[in-house]
Amino acid sequence: MALHPIGLVPLVIAELPSLQGGSMTVGGYLPRGHVSYARVMNPMHDDDNQPLAWWTFAAEQSEVDATTKWTDLNDGEREVNPTIGTIEPTVAATLARLLRAHTSAPTECFFLVWEGYTGMRDDLRDTASITILPDREVLILAGDLADGAEPFDGMANGRSAQWWMPADGVWAVGNDLYGASVYISGTEELITDILAADDIEAYRATASMQIVSEEWAS
């Protein structure tokens, strides 16, 4: 794993807290002035470890979109829940592939990890940190974009970094420690590619849309 600690907070990350809004809108959470947004869901897995999309749990009269709550879909009849506080490994790998074509700095990316997670390598904890909305102290790691899909705890199917941002700031990826999905901002071309990918479940979001309340808590 090539993620490594850094000594100073990079500018693209340092300006993040001052740009974030006071409410948890998508545009306030990912405040880069980007034009397009998406919400990507972490899948569940069945007994054979096959991924299950959120829409498979929707009632016939329901339609999943960027505002959907997991609690509105899960009727409790099946003991499954999406992974929270990370980006599910297969989703992360797909995002890393798609995002790479939309930055001039794929080898210079920054990754934010909530400082409260256990299991991190000790050397990764000796790094710069910053506080972001909603009052989360996060550690800042650096590496190639592909490293964002790698578990920072070194375990198979372990947690990956919750926030990703390249040095050129052209897109941002954010997931809270309670999040069962991840929000992405960037160019329309990027979001179009994400929405068209057939191996992830993604829905178009807007800057003014509230982050789904069950996915964060102050």
Rank of each mutant, 00 (worst) to 15 (best):
I200N: 01
A180E: 10
V170A: 08
D72G: 04
D193P: 04
L141K: 09
L3N: 00
I191Q: 03
L112Y: 03
T107M: 03
A156N: 14
M1L: 15
D144E: 04
T206L: 02
A161G: 04
M1N: 12
I132V: 13
E77Q: 11
A197C: 10
R204A: 13
V80C: 12
T187R: 07
A59N: 11
L99T: 08
L112W: 01
E150R: 05
D199K: 12
R121Y: 13
E150L: 04
P51W: 00
T90A: 10
A14T: 14
A217F: 07
G85W: 03
G158M: 02
R78T: 13
N42I: 04
A146S: 10
A207M: 02
W216V: 04
W163E: 14
F152Y: 07
Y37R: 15
T83F: 12
S23V: 10
D153L: 13
I191Y: 04
N42R: 09
I194Q: 01
N175V: 14
H45L: 10
L141I: 05
R39E: 09
E60W: 04
M155H: 13
E150N: 00
G28E: 07
T131E: 13
E15C: 05
T67P: 00
L145M: 08
R39G: 05
P82E: 15
A202S: 08
G76N: 06
L52Q: 10
P17C: 09
A101K: 07
T127V: 07
A167D: 05
A2F: 06
G143L: 05
V26K: 01
P31N: 12
A66E: 14
